[in-house]
Design a protein around this nucleic acid. Structure first.
Lengths: 344, 344
DNA sequence: TTGTCTCAAGCAAACATTATCCTTCCTGCA
DNA sequence: TGCAGGAAGGATAATGTTTGCTTGAGACAA
């Protein structure tokens, strides 16, 4: 079942391939009668021009590569959905690659994408989300970026000038901590993800700074980090609740850990938010379907994806681009935080 | 920053392009010294052969297209992850398209995929998930399937012989209902999704049949359908709880609606599972992080994806394929179901 | 009639590869 | 010395498009 080509159409219509091409693309006038004849044949055979051959000439594939660590984390599908929305305008589609956080896979996929000559790459998570990253891993990305436009989303690579789109996680954390303080909390804990990630370190920096600014002590026993999963949230919360002196509020690095923390609090007989307040980060869709609904900081994931595509498009058009686009997060107050009842 | 080509390498190495190609593909012997020279240049310029040109000859792109309705529903990322896992073996990557349930988008993406000459297509949800579907929409998919291997996942198109991979949703529902009956429930409600989808209709059929088989009455007031969202689950549960005579257990079409239902039950002062039992379907990761953890039927989403790729690969290799592969679901008993306390 | 202009359509190059068919050069053997 | 045979590598066609240049045919004016 050979795919039919522009030659087949041209032959049967008794015209040259050039004419068929012109009908296809409207790049030059074609007599109404011949056009009709050609269009009829295109219809008859359901002919679709071969995008490969076309790209070979035009140097454009209409494909944007997306590299992300884990589609199972609902934050990423939302970024992706935003990107897809924005990409409609320019008719781009997406080559999607899950790395499961493995750098080897990131490298592999970067290579594949270059081979396939994608028009641009959106890079989320992984090595760009590390506080520090081995020089050769950095260099590798830079090498690719010299040939293909790359946008880093919510991450960075030290000592490079790569274009980035990020949420202002620092500001977001300040919002969250201030909110807890305004509710009267003075004993506030922090549940983080992997400590060598930028996300965790930025949020932790904001957390410490805000407490200090407000004249509250920073208790290191209440600052725990592990990973970004619900399971991790459960375990760290458990540690907090086993302490002799417990916090009355906890600021979590993301919604997953926050949901885990709430679960554990329940298991320890504490009611959220009456006995303990918990605030998350991301505002994944789940956040307002969980009991109690989660107070959190919205990342505007969809907008992050949209912006990434916009920026990428500018780069593809050789336009001027801002090296750093920062989106303001927003505090979403729901049910998991409440004024302090009484110090424990 | 022009991408460098096999010619550039050949020129600088003072050999013909044929030789470089042979080094690249190992298709013929090359003297060790020339090979070394060429490899050095490849390294130096980070040369990657253009996959487009290659595909033009080989008629293979190494890309599998995936069409699905909504990546935001955690079931789909899991299927995707399974597919990706399996695709590693053959080195395929994925062109991913979200249709948001719009048939026009499905058509558009099918066309794009054919233009891009993907090696195969995995089709989830959308029109293949309807009980009935307009003939021209059916025909369109069949036309594409004549040119490119297509596998339908958890769906069907009437009067066609398209290859399918499905979970046995009928059996799964029987497991769920039997479980409730074994716990002593006799008054069981059903919360469905869109009523014109195959998923809802299959599950509903299984639901009715099982009750009848067990000699229990089917009360139509307790069978409600709307959509697959958490919000829908909340609303339908509300309707159930406003009835004068209420069920003591509810079987939900998926985990999303089940989670919504649990939430509403809580708002009505009912404890799950003490006052009312609720069972879901899908076993999304969230299911065991919610309070109470959800009793549900596991779809083995990941395996579904893996199998789809396996089948697709057989089709690509012109091998014999089973027209229908059916995966057995599994009842996962957690905390949202319990023996009946007392009839309300 | 001739020259000019315009519209429609053809020709052939270009794109980056791979595959096929050749050529050249060496080595070993009779 | 002649020659077979194999290793190494070159030349070229082929893949399916787009596009710049060219050509041919009318139309129309001088």
């Amino acid at each position: 079942m050979r795919q039919i080509t522009i030659y087949d159409i041209a032959n049967e219509a008794k015209v040259s391939v050039a004419t068929v091409s012109r009908v296809l693309n409207g790049t030059a006038p074609v007599k109404v009668s011949t056009r009709a004849k050609i269009e009829a044949l295109i219809q008859k055979y359901q002919f679709q021009p071969n995008a490969m051959a076309r790209s070979l000439l035009s140097k454009e594939t209409g494909i944007i590569g997306v590299i992300l660590p884990d589609l199972t984390n609902p934050f990423f599908p939302e970024v992706f959905a935003g990107a897809e929305l924005e990409a409609q305008e320019s008719g781009h589609t997406f080559l999607l690659c899950n790395t499961m956080g493995l750098y080897t896979k990131e490298s592999e996929y970067l290579n594949i994408m270059q081979e396939k000559r994608v028009d641009g790459i959106i890079f989320l998570g992984g090595r760009i989300n590390l506080k520090d990253c081995e020089p050769h891993l950095v260099q590798e990305v830079v090498d690719h970026a010299n040939k293909i436009p790359i946008v880093l989303v919510n991450g960075n690579l030290r000592n490079t000038e790569l274009t980035r789109v990020v949420t202002d996680e620092y500001a977001g954390t300040v919002f969250a901590v201030r909110h807890l303080i305004e509710l009267g909390h003075t004993q506030i804990g922090f549940i983080g993800g992997e400590s060598h990630t930028t996300t965790t370190s930025i949020k932790l920096r904001a957390f410490r700074k805000t407490l200090r600014d407000e004249g509250l002590p920073v208790k290191e026993d209440w600052i725990l980090t592990d990973s970004f999963s619900m399971e991790s949230g459960r375990q760290l919360m458990q540690k907090l609740l086993e302490l002799s002196e417990k916090p009355t509020a906890v600021c979590c690095v993301n919604d997953f850990t926050a949901i885990g923390a709430i679960k554990t609090a329940g298991e320890y007989g504490l009611k959220v938010p009456d006995d303990i307040s918990i605030v998350g980060f991301d505002d994944i869709p789940l956040a307002h379907h969980v009991i109690p609904e989660l107070t959190t900081v919205s990342q505007q994931a969809s907008e992050l994806g949209q912006t990434a595509v916009k920026v990428l498009r500018q780069m593809m058009n050789k336009g001027k681009v801002k090296k750093l686009t920062s989106l303001e997060p927003q505090l979403i107050i729901r049910q998991s935080t409440a004024p302090i009842k009484s110090p424990l």
